[in-house]
Computed example of a mutant assay.
Amino acid sequence: MDAGSTARDSIRDLEARINQDIIGQKRVVERIVIAMLANGNVLLEGLPGLAKTRAIKSLSQNLESEFSRIQFTPDLLPSDVTGGEILRQDGQFEFRKGPVFGNLVLADEINRAPPKVQSALLEAMEERHVTVAGKRYDLPPLFMVLATQNPIEQEGTYPLPEAQMDRFLMHVRIDYPSDADEVKVMRLVRAESATSGSGKEPPPKITQQVIFDARAEIDRVTTKDVVENYMVALIAATRRPAALGDKLKNWIAIGASPRGSLALDRCSRTYAWLKGRDYVTPEDVQAVVHDCLRHRVSLGYEAGADGVDADDVLDEVVKQVAVAV
């Protein structure tokens, strides 16, 4: 593979543009790009004000795409997501598309709506189409749900069903920026306010074809048997934790589903491609394993009693599972 491929250069340019808008969240931006190139959906979790929505808007502003936003509220209906049929004056029914038919769909504060509305996204996220009144409507070739949620401990939130969590390729957590980065954020917002309405032309948007070309190159990234076995071993450790000791046995209640293996494979190959390689290393797997599995591992009550979260559990799994040579 050409290390200087046009598609990769364009994707790196896209990352750089978003990082100019989102200070101190390079890892989050990289994960969003990985999920998009891997043709998956991403769930961003963090406290209010950590630029979750801003990151997604910046992606849409720099990529040739149709952006749509669904603000999830307790009174939202499933038809507000998928759309529905309306009766025209001539007595015929016409399907009016909902916001889910965009290229980049921002599902904002997804865990503030009841489960019935959350589930309205399931078919779209997995099958890439919706069915209304018995008719199927396909979604565009470039389609991605970028959902944000506040920590479930906050008031007015509904935990996402396990089936829907599993539909997200990656679950990315956003932390506070460093003090130095926060100073840069203030300066950025101040500069934006001062230059608003200046008439400065934004750079040309990156075309959707770049995304499709990048995906074609990623499909050619190779994974050796030893790395495939390593991925499966990580997944197996979450399903049979007793083999790694009583600590993990007590912490893990339910292991990752087969979607976890598929997510590791797709994201590892994408990560390797972004780094300019046409093969996957164990380090590539370790770089994405937390984002691919933290929402696919259910913890037992002893984990809570020990003050352990999913990331701590995965740290232990990675520590104990060796790469077979």
Rank of each mutant, 00 (worst) to 15 (best):
A7C: 07
H295S: 03
E316K: 02
S58E: 05
I32W: 04
F212Y: 09
G197H: 10
P48Q: 14
P241L: 00
S65E: 00
M1D: 13
Y176C: 05
K97G: 08
R220V: 09
M125F: 01
F93V: 09
P140H: 07
D306F: 01
D246N: 15
D108G: 02
E85G: 15
T223E: 12
V321W: 07
Q209S: 14
S257F: 10
T281H: 03
S58R: 02
E153C: 01
L47R: 05
A163H: 08
C292V: 14
A256L: 09
L169R: 08
D2M: 08
I174Y: 04
T270V: 01
L264T: 06
P99V: 00
G260F: 02
L244Q: 05
V117M: 03
P141W: 00
E64V: 01
R112I: 14
F72G: 03
I23Y: 09
T238K: 02
A242R: 12
L160N: 08
A107L: 04
K200V: 13
A324Q: 15
T82H: 12
F143S: 11
D265I: 12
Q208Y: 10
K205L: 13
G49Q: 07
A263L: 11
T223D: 03
R296W: 06
A303T: 06
G245P: 03
E201A: 14
E182C: 06
A124R: 02
V210A: 06
L139G: 13
C267H: 11
N19V: 04
Y137P: 04
L76F: 00
E94L: 05
V221P: 07
L104Q: 09
